[in-house]
C-alpha cells in the first residue's frame, strides 16, 4: 500500500517537472552540505529538483530500503543488519564517498585544556574520569554533551575510541544544541561536526587538539592539510548510498558533487574533499 502510494507520488512528480525529483535523506551532519549542493545544482540544472531532509543516517538508509529516498546520506558505513535487509529485498546497493568530515571536540573557552590524548578522551567519555582534576587544575565535574544514540556521529566516536559512553552523558538533539550548551557550561565537553565550529564563528568555545598514539603531533580538526593527509584521529568519509537501478536518475547530481564547483562547496561548508 505504502509503496503503491510512493509510486503514485513519483508518477505525479515526474509528469509535473519532466525530470524526477531526487529525494535525499539521512545524516544530520551532512544535511547542510547537501542543501547547498541541491541549491547550486538547481541553478545549473533548472529542470531538476533535489529535495533534502535529515533525520539521521539510519533513517536515510531505512528510507532507501523502503523506497522513500533515492540517495541515503550516511556519516557511517552501512552495517550488517541493514545490508541483510537490502539482500532480502534483492536491492543492489552502490555507494559513493563525496566528502570527509572531522569531528571536533569542544570545551568552553576558560577550561585550561588545549590538547587531549585519545586515551584521556576515552576515559572522559566512558566515565572513568568524573571530574577535570586529572587533566586540568580544577576539580569540577565533567559534563558530557553528545548526540543521541541514533546518530552516526555518536556511533563513530564510540567505535573509534572503542568505548561505551557513560550513561551520564547528556544526549542532545543536534550539533547546534551541543554548542549552545558548551557556551554556558564551563565544565562541559561535547563533540560536533567540524563544519559547525569552523571559521572562528564561535568565540566562547574552544576546539581541542587531538593527540593519538600514531601521529605524535596534536592535530586540530580545522587543519585542512592534515585532514586531507589523513592525520586527524576523528575524520571519516561521508557516504551516499543509492540503488544501482536508479543511477540514471541521480548520475548528474553525483557528477556535480564531484566537479570543481562541488569541491568548492564542500570546502566553504566546513568539510573536506575526499581525494
Amino acid at each position: 500500500m505504502k509503496s503503491l502510494f510512493a509510486c503514485f507520488l513519483f508518477a505525479v512528480g515526474s509528469c509535473a517537472s519532466g525530470d524526477a525529483i531526487i529525494k535525499v535523506k539521512g545524516s544530520d551532519t551532512e544535511v547542510n552540505l547537501a542543501v547547498q549542493f541541491a541549491e547550486s545544482f538547481h541553478e545549473v540544472n533548472e529542470t531538476s529538483i533535489v529535495s533534502i531532509s535529515g533525520g539521521g543516517s539510519g533513517l536515510g538508509i531505512a528510507s532507501l530500503i523502503n523506497g522513500n529516498a533515492d540517495i541515503a546520506n550516511s556519516s557511517r558505513r552501512i552495517n550488517d543488519e541493514e545490508l541483510e535487509l537490502f539482500k532480502k529485498k534483492k536491492i543492489v546497493l552502490d555507494s559513493f564517498v563525496f566528502a570527509q568530515d572531522a569531528i571536533a571536540f569542544v570545551v568552553a573557552k576558560d577550561l585550561k585544556l588545549d590538547t587531549i590524548s585519545t586515551i584521556d578522551l576515552a576515559k572522559v567519555l566512558s566515565g572513568v574520569y568524573k571530574n577535570w582534576e586529572a587533566l586540568t587544575d580544577k576539580k569540577v565535574q565533567i559534563n558530557i554533551y553528545g548526540r543521541q544514540n541514533n546518530s552516526g556521529t555518536h556511533d563513530f566516536v564510540k567505535q573509534r575510541l572503542s568505548i561505551d559512553f557513560t550513561p551520564y552523558a547528556k544526549q542532545m538533539n543536534g550539533n547546534a544544541q551541543i554548542i549552545e550548551a558548551i557556551k554556558t557550561d564551563h565544565s562541559g565537553i561535547g563533540y560536533v561536526g567540524a563544519g559547525y565550529v569552523g571559521h572562528g564563528a564561535n568565540t566562547e568555545i574552544k576546539v581541542l587538539y587531538i593527540k593519538d598514539g600514531v601521529v605524535k603531533r596534536p592535530v586540530s580538526p580545522l587543519d585542512a592539510t592534515s585532514i586531507v593527509a589523513g592525520l586527524y584521529f576523528f575524520q571519516r568519509p561521508l557516504f551516499q548510498y543509492y540503488r544501482r537501478s536508479s543511477i540514471s536518475k541521480i548520475k548528474a547530481f553525483l557528477q556535480f558533487e564531484n566537479s570543481d564547483q562541488g569541491q568548492q562547496i564542500i570546502r566553504t561548508a566546513g568539510y573536506y574533499p575526499f581525494k
Binding site: 533525520g55 539521521g56 539510519g58 533513517l59 531505512a62 543488519e81 541493514e82 535487509l85 543521541q148 544514540n149 541514533n150 544526549q171
Partner: peptide, 11 residues
C-alpha cells in the same frame, strides 16, 4: 522518540 526511528524491525 529517540530510538524508535532507528531501531531495526523485530529485534
Amino acid at each position: 522518540a529517540i530510538e524508535m526511528g532507528e531501531v531495526p524491525y523485530q529485534t
